[in-house]
Amino acid sequence: MTKTNDPILLSVDGPIATLTINRPDARNAMSIEILDAFHAAIDDLQSSDAHALVITGAGRAFCAGMDLKAVLVELSGDPSIGKQLLESLAELTLKLRSLPIVTVASINGAAIGGGCGLACVCDVAVTHADAKLGFPEVDLGLCPAVIAPWVVKKLGPGVARNAMLMGGVMSGSEAHAIGLVDALANAREELPELTKQIAERLATGGAKALAATKNLLNTIDGSLDPTLVRKGAELSASVLATPEAQAALSARMNPSK
């Protein structure tokens, strides 16, 4: 069992497992440490008896996306971290998508960029009306290439194109209207109950039937082919390394400069 200060918390309650991204002081942004622990947790779940997995974030945010401090070379001093993070995220999305347990993203707060992409990888996404979701990568000079194939599968190609090119963020209600989330709680306090209802409903289904259905959907929509997602990591890393992207990130991190 995980300890309360671990980067990823994993708990099991009957047929429902819950994975919590636990870096609340950084809005659960994905660092190498978070991603490594996330990979390990999903590996552990491969042999679990759970029928459903809920993914959520500790504190106010779900996941703020990539750790911008780590990918801004003037802060980290290491230009290779961005590529490492993107490659790890790419593999994590593939692993999570093919996990033979249905997954529910319970978006308790901000789900931004890669964080919102993770939600799209899940089989079901739920949030509340005031959560903030979106793909502001283009606003920061970045390209959301790793998550784009998943966003396209979730939203449909045209709506995904609009969301990823326009950038910015939207409310939980707007996200529900465009199909980015499948169910909506009226208020943040009501999300745990809604999540519980959905997870319990999913968990009542036969585990083999759920896994077979998920696997068939993954086969039909090309989710099992890693080519695009891996190529996306390369593309995203090459855009991240450009002086233009580094300058835009620097301006975001140091608004006073």
Binding site: E137, V138, D139, L140, G141, L142, C143, P144, A145, A148, P149, V152, P157, A160, R161, M164, L165, M166, G167, L228, G232, L235, V239, T242, E244, A245, A247, A248
Partner: peptide, 28 residues
């Protein structure tokens, strides 16, 4: 107004994103 909004974003990321979405949609 939308064109101006898009034009104000860093160019490399916007272009890479559009070209990448075209590649993802290419099977159609």
């Amino acid at each position: 107004q939308i064109a101006e909004q898009l034009a104000s974003k860093p160019t490399t990321g916007v272009r890479a994103t559009k070209v990448w979405l075209n590649e993802i949609g290419a099977p159609m």
